[in-house]
Amino acid sequence: MTRKLIDSGMVLLDIADNGVGHLTLNRPEAFNGMSVPFLRALYDALMRCHSEPELRALVLRGAGAHFCAGGDIKDFASKGEALPDYLRVATSWLQISVTALMRLNAPVVAAVHGYAAGGGGFGLVCAADLVVAGESAKFLPGATRAGMAPDAGVSVTLPRLIGLRRAMELVLTNPTLSAARAKELGLVNRVVPDEALSEAADQLAGTLAEGAPLALAQSKRLLWDGVGRSVETGLPDEARTVAELSGTADAREGLAAVIERRRPRFTGR
């Protein structure tokens, strides 16, 4: 059974009984292009995710033909000379939304079909924890093609995901990457037939939802924090986190399950 949390508007949200949520970008008529109202709706939906204790994994997807085509170019062009002020607002909402995605305790699986382009689509892919792509999906940084610079944290996340030289080439030359090439580079975890995308993403999210939520949340935090810090600052935090987790009921259950050769039953305590 699925519970509808946000059932109308530019971003939809639901959560199933197994703890798997679905956050759907819902501007198919604009290829899920990002405007300020859209970004506010995205942030509100992510904040709702943060307030749902039953959420154990989240699938991020797009309605219509594409995952997300990036910024809403027509919306941007309509602002004329006021565009810089408008983009300051848009970028602020985008950045806090990406941060909310990375800081969500539940692991995030991006299910990508069609295009994932620009700071919006490409940036959300870089900010997801795991990425499953349909075999016909395309990935395009796109910012410099439009006379812009990367946003949505891409200038930080992309070099860490694929290395500085490769990131520099993608950002400066804007090739359109196939799903297979994106997987080779390390942007995508799995490539599946287009018709199997939804099922594959849900299966992966379902597997994550069965995991120990406290351990997954802390592991995710450590890995994202590691993107921007040194080993010297990261190792003490890692050790402290491991010690704290060892005192949880889930850790005791996990050890018992290994010893008894059975599936663990995690409760998030």
Rank of each mutant, 00 (worst) to 15 (best):
G121P: 03
A205G: 05
G123Q: 10
L170C: 12
V156P: 00
G119R: 06
K183W: 02
R221E: 01
V125K: 08
L187K: 08
A196W: 06
S136N: 14
K138Q: 15
A201P: 06
V132Q: 06
L177G: 09
I96K: 15
V192I: 14
P141M: 04
A167R: 07
G163H: 06
T157G: 01
A179E: 09
M148R: 14
S198V: 10
A143F: 13
A127Q: 07
G121S: 07
Q203W: 03
L208N: 03
T99I: 04
R221K: 04
A116T: 11
Y115N: 14
L222F: 02
W224F: 15
G147C: 06
L104G: 02
L140M: 11
R145Y: 13
V98A: 13
E210L: 13
I162W: 14
Q218R: 07
A205L: 05
R103G: 09
L204S: 01
L223V: 06
L94K: 08
A128C: 07
R160H: 15
L94P: 03
V171I: 15
A152R: 05
R190N: 08
V98G: 02
L197P: 10
S155V: 14
S198W: 00
I96T: 15
L222N: 01
T207N: 06
D202A: 14
G134V: 09
A215P: 00
N189K: 05
G153A: 12
L161T: 00
A217C: 09
V132E: 06
P175L: 04
L177W: 03
N105Y: 00
T176A: 15
L197R: 11
V154A: 12
T144R: 15
V112C: 13
A201M: 02
G206L: 03
G147K: 08
A196P: 01
P213S: 01
D194S: 11
V98F: 04
L130Q: 14
L172I: 12
V171E: 14
D225L: 05
G153P: 11
T173M: 08
G119K: 03
M102H: 10
K138H: 10
R181H: 14
P175M: 03
G147F: 07
P141L: 08
A111W: 01
L177N: 08
A110P: 07
A200R: 02
T144D: 00
L222H: 01
A180W: 08
I162A: 12
G118P: 11
L130H: 14
L187M: 11
P175G: 06
W224S: 09
N189Y: 04
